[in-house]
Nucleic acid binder design. Structure first.
Lengths: 245, 245
DNA sequence: TATTATTGTCTCATTTTGTTACAATAATAC
DNA sequence: GTATTATTGTAACAAAATGAGACAATAATA
């Protein structure tokens, strides 16, 4: 065995998490997808929960390892627990492609229940790092994802659905944009999440009416037109988790 | 040992579910709470997941055992995975009060991650049955719950919050009322869930505007006033789970 | 037959949202 | 400089949704 696999003693068996990490590149909504060595398999970044750590903390630990970011907006959205979801053959393929010998009965081949989270991060503040088993980790536009292994496609769907539902009440834009941004950029985030065009004047009036933005200096891009204002959220720093008080 | 405990071989270790079962008695929103023998401990009905059954099916099985109902509206809303949530002392108390000898290391004393669901049922169609470990199972108004053990109070809070958020889009009323009901009853459901009074005329206009109700004969209660119409949801039978196609 | 409580509906005021219009710019072309 | 171009910020009006009150139509009962 060439590399060290996670051991069953350290982790809770049958329990995993998967994360849908959203970023916005100025035009499109994107997701971080990793590809396993020599398998052509694409998957969501995920991991396991240590015996002595909170579920939420396990996910934060995984995100930190992959993105280097510490204070990430994170929201749990669903737990996937169907018998049909895990696929031991897929798992075996991944392990064997990494030169792990896999004995029958290895805990990684068992049934897994997965708790799914989505994260919102600032696209530009991150240089994603692959983990030991995976080749690469890259951004993919949500409408141009490669075929994902197991039920990861469904997980992404549900994440998008939840994100859409939370768009208004959770100030999603705050976490996908840099601290200063134009109204146009904010609108593009909304459009990318909702998957539909919005009317400029109505959007602007509505957002300004919420009284959550602070206006700053103008942004001179060098383009031949009126320079837009920059805004930031009044509500200070991007918030990691708007939790029940 | 006087009774048979669930065995670790049959179930997935460290994984449980809890259910918040809502009912509406015509006035108040209520929840089914069970009380364990000789302990004074109140808890949500919950259970474990068999090695070879879907997570959702485990919950349905538990609900069926407790309510006798088969086709229950069920929605998963959160997974609770903090280290601090399980309390081995509480679990031991419950088991010992039922004359179970509890050896150190029994799986039931381990850490548990719990997937929480809420269910909506027709209050009158049910005669709740206690399980083997519990004394009684009873309806409690959501604003008059006894103190619940462990983190079950938080679970109820989150369930209510989710129910409120889903009220509009999931046709909650459909599952909490009998098949025919008056406009007033429907309004009472909305008020109970939202925790606030609604304006009668506005409510009526809005609901009728949704074009989801079918009007039937009048209901003569014997009261000294105009008899209200009975309505039913056009959308036929109460739906078990409005799932992603 | 008058009284009472409640229901169904209408009307008008208020608020919110949709839509169009237009002035104010920051470049660039001349 | 001055006209041109693309975009932005905001105002103005129309349309739609919601809030609030009024009122006629009952099923009993007194």
């Amino acid at each position: 065995m060439s590399k060290i696999l996670p051991s069953v003693d350290e982790y809770i068996p049958h329990l995993a998490y998967d994360s849908v990490i959203f970023g916005f590149n100025g035009e499109q909504l994107k997701i971080l997808i990793l590809e396993y060595h020599n398998t052509g398999l694409f998957a969501l970044p995920g991991g396991f929960v240590r015996q002595n750590e909170n579920l939420d903390d396990a996910v934060k630990r995984g995100l930190k390892e992959r993105t280097g970011l510490d204070n990430i907006y994170l929201e749990q959205f669903h737990t996937f627990g169907d018998l049909s979801r895990p696929d031991p053959d897929v798992m075996r393929t991944i392990l064997e492609a990494n030169d792990h010998e896999v004995e029958e009965g290895n805990w990684l081949l068992d049934r897994f229940i997965s708790v799914a989270y989505y994260a919102l991060i600032n696209y530009n503040s991150v240089e994603p790092k692959p983990d030991e088993l995976s080749d690469s980790i890259n951004w993919y536009a949500v409408d141009k994802l490669p075929p994902l292994m197991m039920d990861h496609g469904k997980i992404v769907e549900k994440a998008l659905e939840t994100l859409r539902n939370n768009l208004e009440k959770k100030l999603v834009g705050m976490n996908l944009l840099p601290s200063k941004f134009t109204m146009k950029e904010l609108q593009l985030v909304y459009e990318a999440v909702l998957g539909e065009k919005l009317r400029r004047t109505t959007f602007q009036r509505k957002i300004l009416g919420l009284d959550i933005l602070k206006r700053h200096e103008k942004l001179f891009t060098g383009a031949a037109h009126k320079a837009p204002y920059l805004y930031s959220f009044k509500n200070k720093a991007p918030i990691e988790h708007q939790e029940h008080a």
